[in-house]
Design a protein around this nucleic acid. Structure first.
Lengths: 206, 206, 206, 206
DNA sequence: CATGAATGAGGGTTCATTCAT
DNA sequence: AATGAATGAACCCTCATTCAT
């Protein structure tokens, strides 16, 4: 889609960029931002260090590009689920499943996602923080507005929808974390129904 | 209390140590482990760098001491609440409130706590990770065993108690995070009842 | 000679390396391993500290490279003299002269050589020690085997050839040391015949 | 002898001083000047660091005191042998034996002695060097003058007596070094006759 | 345009020395 | 007089970044 109307040169550059970001994702996820050097990333991506700097102004920009790209993907997918027409309860269940799917085959991203959304990355240099947070808040708001619809239709209890959204995020993330730590024992996907059940029972109108 | 039976020298050393840890906590919480230098900590604590190293073998040990001390406090308080006699529902509500209290006047610690328990710190050098994780897991198990009691008494639904505990942690942490980001708007304490209500409604037997 | 078949880049690297080693030799010889900092070496060699570390993994490796390179040269030259065909007495006299030649225009190396072979360097960090000692022992053995030949031919007294070698080394080194301390007064080269005479008279068969 | 006419206080101080020097000797000999800290010495000597500094102005002075004290002992003993009346050959043989005796039960000192006389200590800060060297040169001169007497009596060949002394020192030191490195294999004492024989055969008149 | 050699600021840590008790 | 807590200069080394080729 985005590759349309691009010269060969431009397509190649895009491929390079993706390779670099992929290498960076692997390394950051394995060892954390500060334990990865630019040389290491360049080597893993099979480019010269200078080339890496042609694509990304500095380490921070590279990191930010990586995070933002992944966040956009994540946001786009889940946002899609939430904007579907239909029964609120179905949408919520789908949302929970979709969240599983997003990370199912991308543990590396999940790790980074937690580092960022948990505020644990301690403003790798600030500035970055806000942009993701905005994206994340947008999603929460969208979730809240879905829940509000459910309240209006008397399908959900009349609680603060924003806080309900926060609670849902909290539960799903907690389970994702379980899965991240011990994928064998705690399958997020297998537990998605349990999560949905617990949450929905807590917020559904009688 | 703990200062009883100590010589003046020893009491002073304890005070110094606390000052150093306090300075370190502030800085680590503001900027993250890797963005804080030992010189910086020494300066903030108003000691010479050598003195800092007299108290802590190296940066990692300092960090570990800080985390473990705070974790032990946290663990001790919440563990105390969970081991009270009495109605399961009351205990759970108390637990949620207590969790608020623990961090109420210590945002810095909360930030560190998240960095660590979320696994986002990418094992600052391993070793540390496991110790806190153990402490944390212990608490989860204790919470799970409280929930199990509730199930046995038919006060709670017959769901996997470990996952119920995970869910509760997820919700409470999500709210703490809200508060951390914008303490004015989202008071965790004020919302503790909402949290409890949502969670309990989701897990209570009819 | 060794620069054949090398790219310009490679030849330059070799030149850089030599400059660094030369600077290090000067400094180590003047002040000793522990009184020379890597910054000092870098400065004297007119490179940035980082560049120094590109060429040598750390201070110890730099030192070891320096010592081993010089030791190999020294060993190679003297070993060459000892493996010549011909009269044992001539070989020994040549050996004594050659030893003079090796150090004639390289006082710095001589100083380092003594520091190492005299065991006085107190294994700068071990590992190094053994490698030079091995090289040195090899030479002594070769010298001993030359002396053994002399004994077999009844040109030398039937004494333990290893100890004869030790004695010869002791005498020559003592004179080198004299020269090292006061090159004007005690020319090792001028005294080589005296040394040879004294030693040979002591070990020659009648 | 030196303890005569001293107050109890003074005698005690002397004892302290000796303990400190003994600890320092052990450590310096084991690990070398730069790998021993003042704290380590204080600890081994069982004094507070401040007390150590009361007795020795700084690390260098402590080292110098140690070296000079040992050198004086060494010098005194050997000087005694050389100033005996009697046959030159006997004196020389006695000298060689005495040199063995001096170090026989004090390997630590021997190690230090080599570090210093070999110039390998690289002027731990200069200044020190000269004082020992002077003491050492004095001994060489005394040895040379003994040899001169032998020449005058036509017992020794008419060679430069200073260089003969240098040669003798070279041989004996080489054997001491052998012994230092592998005391089992190379007994200096057992080889003293061999050394004497080789040297004397080389310098004796026919 | 890609490359990677060169740079040097800055971080963690040690240890000789001082001085209040 | 003896102590040892406190100090901070200086060391080794890493790594983000630049720029000549």
């Amino acid at each position: 889609m985005q590759n349309k109307n691009l010269t060969r040169r431009e397509r190649e550059k895009l491929r390079y960029r993706r390779q670099m970001l992929a290498a960076a994702l692997e390394l950051f996820s394995e060892k954390g931002y500060h334990n990865v050097s630019m040389h290491e990333i360049a080597k893993r991506a099979e480019f010269a260090i200078g080339t890496l700097y042609k694509f990304f102004k500095n380490k921070e920009h590279l990191y930010k590009a990586l995070i933002m790209e992944k966040a956009a993907e994540y946001h786009h997918t889940l946002s899609g689920v939430l904007s579907r027409e239909g029964d609120v309860l179905t949408i919520l269940k789908d949302y929970i499943s979709a969240k599983a799917g997003v990370f199912a085959d991308d543990v590396a991203t999940l790790r980074l996602y937690f580092a960022e959304t948990r505020g644990a990355s301690f403003n790798i240099k600030s500035g970055l923080d806000q942009d993701i947070r905005n994206l994340y808040d947008e999603l929460i708001e969208q979730l809240a507005s879905t829940l509000k619809k459910g309240i209006r239709k008397n399908m959900l209890r009349d609680l603060n929808p924003y806080y309900m959204a926060v609670a849902l995020e909290g539960i799903t993330n907690a389970f994702l974390l379980c899965w991240l730590e011990d994928p064998e024992r705690h399958s997020y996907e297998a537990n998605a129904p349990v999560i949905g059940d617990m949450f929905l029972k807590g917020v559904m109108a009688e």
